[in-house]
Computed example of a mutant assay.
Amino acid sequence: MRAKLDELVTAALQRGAAVPAFTCYDFTTATAVVEAAEETGLPVILNVAPKTAAARAGQRLITALRSLADGAAVPVCVQLDHASDLAVIRESVRSGADCVLADGSALGFEENIALVRGVRAVLNADGGTAVVLEAELGGLAGDEDKAFGVDVQAAGLTDPTQVRDFAERSGAQLLAVAIGNVHGKYKGAPKVRWDVLERISAETTSSEATVPLVLHGASGIPAGELLKARTLGVGKVNFNTELRSGILATLEAETAAHRADGENLQGLLGRWNASAREFAAATLRTLGE
């Protein structure tokens, strides 16, 4: 069933939980994630990467995910992730995305605010007033679509002193932060800066309108630390690398046997689904129960 991202995340925080978001490059993975959500009875977010959305069949995928989400027995959001191209954002919303990460994190502070406000203006003019906007302040090192090892020291941190001003002026309804998290795989153990998150949390919860926080690059961060993040205002947690790694490992282990079994593609896709579903269900339970 359709749900508003900000309301979904706020409700999760109120019960001491968080909602996971999984990047889905295809319908098989998205189906597995939704099945896991229905199995656990918990809400979930289907993320679509910007390169996927801009690809030839990207908008068809978003439409398919919207239909999958609408037919689910639990609340499901479809989000366009890390987007800055206004044309892709507008097209993706028309195709069925109901939330967008307007990502100006590579820009200067004022330019980042201007991007988020510009996306809101474009969507409002296009009838998308109900679309929920997430923004990102601080730079995450690494690649969103490729899991290279990333030195945590390369990650930029969110400046807590900028958070309240950014949230109020940009109008973002959720705020993704950089606290030592990275996209991809960590070189060495993740080093979450709890001191930075605590200061950010104090800023976002003391303003007139509380802004839920988002943690990107959660793959590889121990479950105990993710649970701690929930207590500091993180209500949405993004996963990509671990989901992809599990799927690829399954395909590597299973392809030869299914080829020998009469080119059994249906069976192989079933194992793909099972791998994604098991990871998603375990993550949903960790964060949502």
Results as ranks from 00 to 15, higher is better:
residue 136 E to P: 07
residue 137 L to D: 04
residue 137 L to A: 05
residue 139 G to V: 09
residue 140 L to D: 01
residue 142 G to M: 03
residue 143 D to V: 00
residue 144 E to C: 04
residue 145 D to G: 04
residue 146 K to C: 10
residue 146 K to G: 00
residue 146 K to W: 11
residue 149 G to D: 14
residue 152 V to N: 14
residue 159 D to H: 00
residue 163 V to C: 03
residue 163 V to W: 02
residue 164 R to H: 10
residue 165 D to T: 14
residue 167 A to T: 06
residue 168 E to H: 06
residue 168 E to W: 01
residue 168 E to K: 08
residue 170 S to V: 06
residue 171 G to N: 05
residue 172 A to G: 11
residue 173 Q to A: 15
residue 173 Q to E: 15
residue 174 L to G: 12
residue 177 V to S: 02
residue 179 I to W: 00
residue 181 N to G: 06
residue 181 N to L: 03
residue 182 V to L: 06
residue 182 V to F: 05
residue 185 K to Y: 11
residue 186 Y to I: 11
residue 186 Y to G: 08
residue 188 G to W: 07
residue 188 G to Q: 09
residue 188 G to L: 09
residue 189 A to W: 08
residue 190 P to W: 11
residue 190 P to N: 12
residue 193 R to N: 10
residue 194 W to M: 13
residue 194 W to G: 04
residue 194 W to E: 09
residue 195 D to F: 04
residue 199 R to P: 00
residue 200 I to N: 00
residue 202 A to Y: 04
residue 204 T to R: 13
residue 204 T to E: 06
residue 204 T to N: 08
residue 207 S to N: 12
residue 208 E to V: 15
residue 210 T to P: 13
residue 211 V to C: 14
residue 213 L to C: 10
residue 214 V to Q: 06
residue 215 L to Y: 03
residue 215 L to D: 02
residue 218 A to V: 11
residue 220 G to P: 10
